[in-house]
Structures are given as structure tokens and as C-alpha cells.
Simulated scan of single mutants.
Amino acid sequence: MDRVVSEANMSDGGEPGPVYAGDLMVGGDLWRRIFDAIEDPVFIQDADGTILSANRATQNLLDVSEPDLIGNRCYAVVHGTESFIPECPFVRASGSHTRESYVIFMFERWFRISIDPILDDAGRFTGAIHILTDITDIKHLDELRSRLAAIVETSEDAVIGATQDGRIVSMNASASRITGLSRDVVETPNIFSVVTAGDEERWEEAIRSVVGTGEGIRFESVLKGLHDNESEVSVGIAPILDERGAPGGVSFIIHDLTPRRKAERALVAYMAEAALRMKVPLETVAQEIGRMTTLLTGGSLTVAEASTILRVQKAHIDQIVQNLADLNRAVAESDEEIPEAYRHFLSNR
């Protein structure tokens, strides 16, 4: 048996003697101290719900002394009602003879009310232990986690949680779409299964660096998807810290760059085509106007002749403008993935 030394129990020689735990049970004092030391409000009821005893936490919560609680029904002091509330766990426990609980909002806080039945030797219900556990902080944390989970799940970026060796433990819908990995696979996939050949070493080094330094890393890469389709992506890797603040895994936030890269290539192609359509005709127009200006200044060209040349060059410029308009329309109506603002501009809407 564990021993506790107390100055109240002295040996004949004046030295402290041993005090056994059983000695502290005199008058139920130890039981009462334990009862009052419990932070959750707890009270004991008889078979009809009458309060027989209440700990200090119950008195503090209800702002009522124990003598004023004893003899009252639980529903009167907790809920302020004249009878048991619907789906009362006490009523359920009296019939099921097992622990019953439910969650309720009262006193501007969320509580889980748990009822543990007290049975006699014959298994008859003789009362219960009524426990109120304040779960407000837990509920708020759960709500926050639910909101964050909804944000992650609906994100267009792939969000993946993995162990330090790359084994995937969670992923959102976008991750499944970008990587082609099923969220219902029997065997746990590994992030390296979607990394293109030759790029695995860079990913391994990045993960080791994140785990070792605790600092995130971002880089661009190419991932394999369904049917060997490849996606150009921006990858962010960050540590997932455990309760000690030590890395327990890594998270990947992957942004699909493929649409942007396609748009960039489409716009580069457009700019090259536009330049080709304008370069030679505009150089020709510029040369003709320059030659006309020289002849006109030297008196070798009349104003009427100059006017005729200008009308011809204007027709050339009008044709160039029409060619660009045709090109703009073709690009705007194409299936190329270009930014909507550019498509709007090119279509002259």
C-alpha cells in the first residue's frame, strides 16, 4: 500500500510516522475531497432524480449551496423545468441500465450531460451519477475544423497530407482530380507514384529539408495524372507538427499551372502570328510613304500623285487591321485556354 507521511501522525520519538490511505477515509473525508476536486459538476441522484449530493463544481455552476440542492429534482435545478426534458439521459439510463448522454446548450456554454446508472445487487436501478462536462472549447474547435475541412475540400488546389516517407493519409477532391489517385484505394498510395521520372530526388530532398528545418518549400514540377496525362504544377511543402512541435508528417499544396501555361503558350503564339501578319506589310507601307515624302519634297511628285499613293497605302493599312481583326476573332472563338479578360478584349466586346 502507498504510504504518505503526515506531521499529524507522529511516532513516539517525535518523528513523523507513516499514514496509510485508509486512515484518511475516516468520516468519508477523503471521498469528499476527491468529489470536490473534480472540475466537472457532478451530483448523485436517487431513482426518481432527487439530488442526494453535489460537488463544489456543481454548486459553483448553479450558484447554489449544497444544502439548497439536496432534495431537489435534477430537472428543476439544471433546466428550470417541472419535469424531465424530452430525451433526458437520466430517464433513458433508468431503462437501459447503461451510460446515456447528450449535448445541450445552457448557461451560455455547451455541455455533455452523462448519466451513469447505479444498480443494486439484483440489477435494479437505484439512482445515478450525473456529470456535466463543459465542451464549449472542444465544440468551437470542432466547428473551426469543420469549416477548415470544408474550405480544404472545396479548394481548387490539391491538398495532401502524408507521412515523412510520402505515404498519403488524406487528400481533397482536387488532389484526386489532379493526380488521378482514387480516394477509396485499398492500398495507401505514395506521393512519389505521381511524380514524373527523374524528379523524385528533388521531391525527396525537399521533404527532408522541410522535416529537418521545419520551414516550407515551394517549387515547380510536373505530375503524372490519369492516362499518363501530365500536369505542370506549383508545389508547396510544409511540415505537419505534432503536439510537441516536432514534424510528424508533411502537407502538400499543389496548384495546377497547366491552364496558365496553355494560356501563356496560346498568347505567345498569338503575338508571333500578329507580328508576322504586320511586319512585312507595315514595312512596305513605311517605305512607300518615306519614298513619297522624299519625291514630294524634291518636287518630283505632285500633290495629286502623293494623294493617290496615300490612298493606296491606306487601303494596305485597312487590310492589315482586317487581318488582325480576323486573327483576334479566331483566337477568341478558339478552344485555347486563355484568360477571359484577353478573350473579351480580342473579341471586341
Score class of each variant (00 low, 15 high):
Met292Tyr: 00
His140Met: 03
Glu336Ala: 13
Leu61Tyr: 00
Ser53Tyr: 10
Thr293Lys: 15
His344Cys: 01
Thr154Met: 03
Tyr270Ala: 01
Gly225Trp: 08
Leu24Pro: 01
Pro259Glu: 11
Arg260Ile: 09
Asp335Ile: 02
Ile70Val: 15
Ala269Pro: 01
Ala238Arg: 10
Gln59Lys: 03
Val78Leu: 15
Glu143Val: 10
Thr58Trp: 01
Gly166Tyr: 01
Leu296Lys: 12
Gln45Leu: 15
Gly49Glu: 06
Tyr75Leu: 08
Ile289Met: 14
Arg277Met: 15
Thr50Pro: 00
Asp29Ser: 15
Arg112His: 03
Ser96Gly: 09
Gly299Leu: 04
Glu305His: 06
Ile253Met: 15
Pro67Cys: 06
Ile309Asp: 00
Ser251Met: 08
Gly27Ala: 04
Ile317Gly: 04
Ser174Ile: 04
Arg343Pro: 11
Ile104Gly: 05
Val321Trp: 05
Asn328Asp: 15
Ile44Glu: 11
Trp110Ser: 12
Ser193Gly: 07
Arg32Cys: 06
Glu220Lys: 08
Arg3Ala: 04
Ile131Thr: 14
Thr136Glu: 01
Asn172Pro: 05
Pro259Asp: 12
Arg218Asn: 06
Asp36Ala: 04
Thr188Lys: 09
Val185Ala: 15
Arg109Val: 02
Glu187Thr: 14
Ser146Cys: 05
Ala274His: 07
Phe111Asp: 01
Gly17Ser: 09
Arg32Lys: 13
Arg329Ser: 05
Asn328Thr: 07
Arg145Asp: 05
Asp12Val: 10
Glu243Val: 07
Arg277Tyr: 09
Val77Leu: 13
Thr258Gln: 09
Arg261Asn: 12
